[in-house]
Design a binder for these strands. Structure first.
Lengths: 139, 139
DNA sequence: ATGCTTCTTTTGACTCATTCAAGAAAACAT
DNA sequence: ATGTTTTCTTGAATGAGTCAAAAGAAGCAT
């Protein structure tokens, strides 16, 4: 877990103002990886009760744009956030219960960023979501 | 383009009743790959003006559940549909203009379905979305 | 063909995640 | 401290998608 000072450092390093809502949002995401916005609002309010939902939406967008958080959205689900780490990984989502786990990239680090034909696109990132059944739902 | 009879055959083959809304929706998706629901409603109404939006939502869900269509949803975008074909492919989405193109699977057919560690999940499908800039936006 | 049963569609209202807007407050630089 | 700029609060609005009940087709059996 990162300390308050670490979090401030993190925000300043991204040229962002250090505000209590942003601190609370980053903490909430760190404590609840893969959480949707509503859960993040609840978790952040445990630390800062007066926090408005709008501030959370704004913070999430700002922090994501700054590269501190990563947003992903399994089809049909709400937006979910996680702390951005450099080791590229993807997600397995249980088709029944919605449980999400991290998985490493399939065939080495960069392979998922190299489609066989790119139609002239300059490709920057890849979102990979595996759908299936988690251990408890598959039994 | 498939004929009316082909489409009927397709629906019957999936044990679905042949209705005019479903025919119109399948035609619309065939004619507009990667279209979102609103575009599909508009395209289907060109063929069947009285069509309700609810019928389109129902048809899309039914046809997708039957495996005739495939639904994908780039994060932050609306749900999009395409005719389901067996050759597994993924999508490149332009971060600026939203243009979508198909790309084949990165490293052979099955590789994207094989994460390095699966956490005990039984994996059924994988959604892969590449984000980047299309040729016109990157210049 | 006719009628019956079941599945679809229409209609219209509703939900709820997310966004918009304007004024108030907080953060930072000087 | 003061002023400027960014961020937050408040409250309302947007809009894709869903729900529900009654009306209407599709398909099956007689």
């Amino acid at each position: 877990m990162l300390s308050t000072l670490d979090l401030q450092e993190l925000l300043r390093g991204a040229s962002l103002r250090v505000t209590r809502p942003r601190m609370a949002v980053v903490s909430a995401v760190l404590a609840n990886p893969h959480a949707d916005t509503e859960s993040i609002i609840a978790a952040a309010r445990a630390e800062l009760p007066e926090l408005s939902h709008q501030a959370v939406y704004d913070s999430l967008r700002t922090l994501t744009a700054a590269g501190l958080l990563r947003c992903f959205q399994p089809a049909g689900s709400l937006a979910r956030y996680e702390f951005h780490v450099e080791n590229n990984h993807h997600h397995v989502v249980c088709r029944l219960c919605g449980f999400i786990a991290d998985v490493d990239c399939a065939v080495g680090k960069a392979s998922c960023l190299t489609p066989s034909s790119d139609h002239g696109f300059v490709i920057e990132t890849a979102d990979v979501i595996y759908w299936g059944l988690c251990p408890s739902c598959s039994s």
